[in-house]
Simulated scan of single mutants.
Amino acid sequence: MTVSSMTGFARVDGATDGFGWTWELRSVNGKGLDVRVRLNGGFERLEAKVRDTVSQHFKRGNMGVTLNVVRTAETSAYTVNRELLAELISIAEEFDNTSSLSAGTIADLMNVRGVLEAVEAQEDEATRDARDDVVLGSLNEAISQMAAHRAEEGEKLDAMLRGHVDNIEATVIRAGNCAAARGDAIKERLKRQIEELMDAGKFEPERLHQEAALLATKADIREEIDRLKAHITAARDMLTKGGSIGRKLDFLCQEFNREANTLCSKANDIELTNCGMELKVIIDQLREQVQNVE
């Protein structure tokens, strides 16, 4: 499976038995799957099936689904409201008793609202169900088109995400190679800090041991480096697996950021501080792109 974006568009036209229609699907980022359906032409009855079909193919995204229906052939009969027409003729004759009504005048009266009305032709349930199946079949075509578009956008996302992960890895390696992060440097710094504590006053051996352990913990960033490397491996595994990984990647970005914050808090020289700040910037860029992943 590949990484899929939540952004996409699809449009499919169809026609059968005097009906023509167009499906339009639009998708943007969303925390979950939110499907908004607009159906016209008497096809509102299909809404539940449309929602179910869409949810079978997509897990996240704000999805707008629109069906526009037009009649491509006459499917209606017409009835004349004779009482209303007779009343209109009577009114017209009051204004012109000297001449008979022309055909043109009758045509004008027919255009009055309520005189000529369309009556929908009756159809059996089997005919309606068959047409519904054809219309829903073209929805599946639109969904396939949407999935392909989201996958295409996902390929671009995948390249950007992998680039950000590579940059995180390079920065983590730099941080691990900083002079302040080496064991001998930590030992020397710890020795100096203990000497400063001793000069400041007398400490009991147990208290001195506790302070030394605390200083050592604050100075050692190896644990943070190891966790960051583990997160890098996890991110690459997710991208390789693909599918609906947006939520997992977003959580992983939070873990990345937590370790970067700890690294910054432990940094005691400019080089290590710069690495920590650069990490935070790259992680923020990664998380921004992750918001587009399904």
Rank of each mutant, 00 (worst) to 15 (best):
residue 119 V to Q: 15
residue 14 G to Y: 15
residue 191 K to M: 04
residue 172 V to W: 06
residue 140 N to L: 10
residue 177 N to L: 01
residue 75 T to S: 15
residue 176 G to N: 12
residue 45 R to N: 11
residue 53 T to Y: 06
residue 199 D to V: 05
residue 230 A to E: 01
residue 124 D to F: 01
residue 193 Q to T: 03
residue 123 E to I: 14
residue 113 R to F: 07
residue 221 I to G: 01
residue 39 L to P: 09
residue 213 A to C: 10
residue 281 V to H: 05
residue 51 R to K: 15
residue 94 E to D: 15
residue 266 K to F: 02
residue 272 L to T: 06
residue 150 R to I: 14
residue 99 S to I: 00
residue 90 S to P: 03
residue 292 N to V: 01
residue 144 S to Q: 11
residue 187 K to M: 07
residue 176 G to E: 08
residue 16 T to W: 15
residue 66 T to D: 10
residue 30 G to L: 03
residue 234 A to M: 13
residue 27 S to V: 10
residue 3 V to C: 08
residue 73 A to I: 08
residue 9 F to E: 09
residue 258 R to D: 10
residue 45 R to Q: 13
residue 200 A to K: 08
residue 182 R to F: 02
residue 21 W to C: 03
residue 215 L to H: 07
residue 99 S to C: 03
residue 238 M to R: 04
residue 44 E to C: 10
residue 261 N to E: 02
residue 261 N to G: 01
residue 129 D to G: 00
residue 36 R to S: 13
residue 272 L to N: 05
residue 235 A to V: 12
residue 112 V to E: 04
residue 204 E to K: 06
residue 117 E to M: 07
residue 280 K to A: 05
residue 94 E to H: 13
residue 176 G to K: 06
residue 28 V to K: 11
residue 158 D to A: 15
residue 173 I to M: 07
residue 152 E to V: 00
residue 89 I to A: 06
residue 109 L to W: 07
residue 122 Q to M: 14
residue 39 L to A: 15
residue 38 R to N: 13
residue 108 D to M: 12
residue 287 R to G: 13
residue 50 V to A: 05
residue 274 N to M: 00
residue 100 S to I: 05
residue 175 A to V: 01
residue 111 N to D: 05
residue 200 A to I: 06
residue 266 K to Y: 03
residue 223 E to M: 02
residue 59 K to M: 04
residue 237 D to S: 14
residue 111 N to Q: 08
residue 178 C to P: 10
residue 8 G to I: 15
residue 30 G to H: 03
residue 23 W to F: 00
residue 7 T to C: 03
residue 139 L to Y: 09
residue 22 T to A: 05
residue 88 L to I: 13
residue 89 I to L: 08
residue 3 V to T: 13
residue 103 A to E: 00
residue 222 R to L: 06
residue 219 A to K: 00
residue 244 S to M: 06
residue 41 G to F: 10
residue 153 E to N: 09
residue 45 R to G: 10
residue 46 L to G: 09
residue 41 G to I: 13
residue 289 Q to P: 01
